[in-house]
């Protein structure tokens, strides 16, 4: 954790429960992490691991869900977003914290020209006049790489291709110079060659605008080239955290190890068989009492089934929630060494 640098966002013991007919779903379960100014953080996990719900909570949108119970604290520049009244959160949301969604098709209102979508935020949050807002929008659209921005600003979302729409989304998100950008699976709906463009653009703009970015994705490859710090989530909890390079090179949590091994890689020789993680992700309304990964873990012992391992610091800015980290690290070193 870059505790030294200015802390932009710090999430403290965040839990989000949803009431459902099947019981209480613990979507997020005691998650703590922080993001420094201008930092690029990757939040990685499978569907249902709570990564998107965490983002929803940071945006303060969970309070609009009637069946959600949120506890903990989300401090953004020292102010707890969960304790603030809705009108103040609304001011922060969109201006200081912006979001890029997975699907640019459904997240842009199809009946409004993109100019309207862009100027709206500028006028509401920054109090610009319509002319100024339009000028700024055109500037932003050219920044994100939309040719002939001045003409295209009158176009409707459907007149743009998937990659272009995602660029428009980014332009809208950046319009008010946010301090924090949440990107929820920003490239999942895009093709590989377009994904490369968008990732590059996001990296470039983040350094240009000094905005911190949280990239939420299931794709380890997407965050590997982009983020400096990685958070791995499983079943509503953070199981591992650390700087990207050491984390990818020597993962400490069996889940991270399993994920990395189960993905075929272009830069490695072809294996005859992939090393898969056994079993399936757990049902969030019936979590096991101990470590949620224990039923799928090859290192699990009695201890793992009884108590959930705490997310403990392991040096070099890393944290890991596993009782058997030492055993794992030992084995991995043995595996790699000869």
């Amino acid at each position: 954790m870059n505790a030294g640098s200015a802390q932009l966002l710090s999430v403290k013991d965040l839990s989000v429960d949803f009431a459902s007919q099947e019981g209480v779903v613990h979507a997020v379960d005691g998650v703590s992490f922080s993001v420094g100014s201008g930092e690029l953080v990757g939040l990685v996990g499978e569907s249902g691991c709570g990564k998107s719900v965490t983002a929803t909570a940071i945006l303060g949108l969970t309070r609009m869900l009637p069946n959600a119970t949120v506890t903990g604290a989300i401090e953004f520049e020292g102010r707890d977003l969960l304790a603030l009244p809705e009108n103040e959160v609304r001011e922060i949301r969109g201006r200081d914290i912006a979001m890029i969604f997975q699907d640019p098709v459904t997240s842009l209102n199809p009946v409004l020209p993109i100019g309207r979508l862009m100027t709206e935020g500028l006028e509401n949050h920054l109090g610009l006049s319509h002319t100024d807002a339009t000028a700024r929008s055109i500037e932003l659209l050219s920044t994100v790489g939309i040719p002939q921005a001045a003409e295209r600003i009158k176009d409707y979302p459907h007149q743009f291709s998937g990659g272009m729409r995602q660029r428009v989304m980014i332009a809208i998100a950046l319009s008010c110079n946010p301090r924090l950008l949440l990107a929820d699976e920003p490239t999942t709906a895009l093709d590989v060659t377009i994904q490369a463009q968008i990732l590059r653009l996001m990296r470039q703009l983040s350094s240009e605008y000094g905005a911190a970015v949280i990239v939420i994705t299931h794709d380890l490859g997407v965050v590997a080239g982009m983020c400096r710090r990685i958070l791995v989530m499983y079943a509503g909890r953070i199981v591992e955290e650390g700087p990207a390079k050491p984390l990818f090179r020597h993962p400490h949590h069996p889940y991270t190890v399993g994920l990395l091994r189960s993905v075929p890689r272009l830069d490695r020789p072809r294996a005859d068989e992939l090393v898969s993680i056994q079993g399936l992700p757990p049902d969030l309304s019936h979590l096991p009492p101990g470590c949620a990964f224990a039923p799928r873990c090859w290192l699990a012992t009695d201890e793992c089934w009884c108590a959930a391992p705490p997310l403990a610091a392991t040096g070099e800015g890393r944290r890991c929630a596993c009782f058997h980290r030492d055993r794992l690290v030992e084995r991995e070193t043995e595996r790699v060494a000869p």
């Binding site: 079993g279 399936l280 049902d283 009884c306």
Partner: peptide, 27 residues
């Protein structure tokens, strides 16, 4: 400790693996 553990495990086995999950783990 181990008694408690067994008990919890059993509880988990019935709760979590009761219906749908029975097939999931054996998959």
């Amino acid at each position: 400790m181990s008694d408690l553990c067994d008990e919890r495990e059993a509880a988990f086995a019935t709760a979590g693996l009761g219906s749908e999950a029975a097939a999931e783990v054996t998959a």
